[in-house]
Every structure is written in structure tokens, then in C-alpha cells.
Amino acid sequence: MRLNGRLLRTPLCIVWALSVSISTGAPPKNPESILLQIFKRTVAVPYRQLVTMRGGPGSKGHMKVSIVGDVRGRSAMTILEPLTETGRTIIDDGVDLTTYIADSKTVITQPSPRRTEPAPEKRVALTKRNYNLSIKDGGKIADRATMVLTASPKEESLPKRVFYLDARALTILRQETLRPGRTSEVTLDTYHIEFSRDIDLDDLRPSDTAEWKLSTWPAPQPFKDWEDAERQCKLSFEPPVDFPYGFEIVGGYLIERSKALNIRLSDGLAHVSVYLYNTKLVKLPRGGRSVGKVVNDIGINIYSDLSTSIEQEFLKVVAQGVKSRL
């Protein structure tokens, strides 16, 4: 059946009417309150958004993705392109993270990363300490009026982050990273968004998964006791009192069957991920996208979205922590 204008107009009018009535009050104009709402994933009406965004960590390529968010803060992501990933759906309901891989008929379940994430209020405070935040009205994206939230780092060598938000729903419609001396990079851009109370995130779960292979992957295990973590990984490390650029530790995890330590650092918006491991037990191949070195048989690798020179700064500080107790 071919769609004609009249058939299309009725549902579009309903969507438009809903989108007008989305706001259950004026959205906040204060940057900190807006950021808090983003970190809490608070939305008043479920939405479906078609975006282009960067691929997996370390990837410079982009993929087309459909994102759905609901009022309970749950989110789903279905990859539309590239064809090698098409149909992969990732659903995070705050309790479980479920990945459906259609090509290999596999379902992977893990505990949601939200269970161990830092409190949104703490993250806002950290961001405010390291960035100057400002808000202003922007142009239209995907036919929606926007507000522009700019986070300018107090450390000049770090990138500036710009978020174009839906002026009513505060959904991120475009995200830009501006690195010093380089052109801006759009890491997420929306080409369509709709709001409707009929959007149900559970509809995205494939229905015929009875014969799919089910894999349960463990989540990275958060640790609180440094000494116990060191003992398990057979290494010795004294965390520095201060990390460069205002970063601080926001999480520590045991991975790889407790043979490696992952320390996660953040300045509120950017992240630096540090891996420490005894090279007599496990190794990382040379090359790849991290900077790294081995100090007294302890391997150190730094992963981030920042420049190599900044990663080298972190490597230097972490290496001093390894040396000091060996």
C-alpha cells in the first residue's frame, strides 16, 4: 500500500501535539540542573531517535543507530548500519544490560553498568569543578528547537564539549568535541526524533529468541579494598594523591577473572581508563589504541578519548605509583 499525504498527516499531527505538550513545566535553564537531568536520564515522554554516532570505543567510524528512551530511564539501541552490525540491539533497563546479536543468534546478559555508576549529583559537582558551563538558545536540529550546553575545560589542553539539547525534552540531539587546534568533531547527530507515549522499549526485544544461544557475562567486579585487589592481581600499586587535569578515581574494578585491575578516572565528562596487570599472568599485545609500558613486570595501559600526549601524562603518574612500592 502506498502512503499518501492524508494518511501520514493524522499520525504526524498527533506526534506534533504530543511533542508540544511534552514539557510538564518549563525545562530548567540552569546548566547544572540540565546536566543533572541528562545524567539521570530523566524524560517526560518516551522518544525514538535516529542518529549517526561514533562506533565502539576506539573507533573513528560512525554508525546509524535507533535510540529509544522511556520515562523510567531505560534505554535501547538498535544498530541500523553498518551492515555487519545491523540488527544488534542493546537494552539497558538499569538492572540488566542485554545484547541481542541477530547474526549469530546470541543473547548476552550482564548486570547493568548503572548499578555501579557514580551518583549523578557527584558527577555534576566534578564537572562543575573542571568545566565552565554555559547555556544559550540554538538553531533547529531534526526540526526541533535546541538549547546549547557548552562545557569549556579549565585545563586548556582538554577538549571542549558542546551538547545541542532538545529545548523541551532535553534529549541530546547533537554532541560535538572541540579539541585544541583542531576542527570540531560531531560524535552524535540526530536526523529524526519523535515523542510518543506509545513507544514501548520492550517491543524492541526480538520475540523469537527461544533457540538463541544465551550467554551470561560477568560484570567488572567493583572493589573497595585496594590491598585485596592488589593481592588478587599479584601487583603493587599506590594510587597517586592527585591525577592530572583535575581527574579523580570514580571506580575500581577487577577484570579478566581477577587478574587485571581497571581504574576509571573522570573529570566529570571525559574518562580515562587505566589497566594494571602482572605481565607474568596476563599480557596485552603491543600496539593497538592505548599507550602503555611495563614497570617492574607490571603492565600499565591507558585508554581514553583524549590525545596521546595527555594519556602519556597519566601513564607517567600511574607508573610512579607502581614504582614506589616495588
Binding site: 545524567f39 561514533r54 543507530v65 542493546i90 550482564q110 553498568p113 555508576e117 560484570a219 567488572p220 581508563s273
Partner: peptide, 15 residues
């Protein structure tokens, strides 16, 4: 691990 934490961050630049 990196993909896992990228998914947990609403302002992550990566899928």
C-alpha cells in the same frame, strides 16, 4: 570492558 562502560554513560561519544 570499555564498551560496557561506554553504554553506561549518557554522554559517551561512543556506542
Amino acid at each position: 570492558n570499555e564498551a560496557y562502560f561506554a553504554g553506561g554513560d549518557p554522554v559517551s561519544p561512543h556506542a
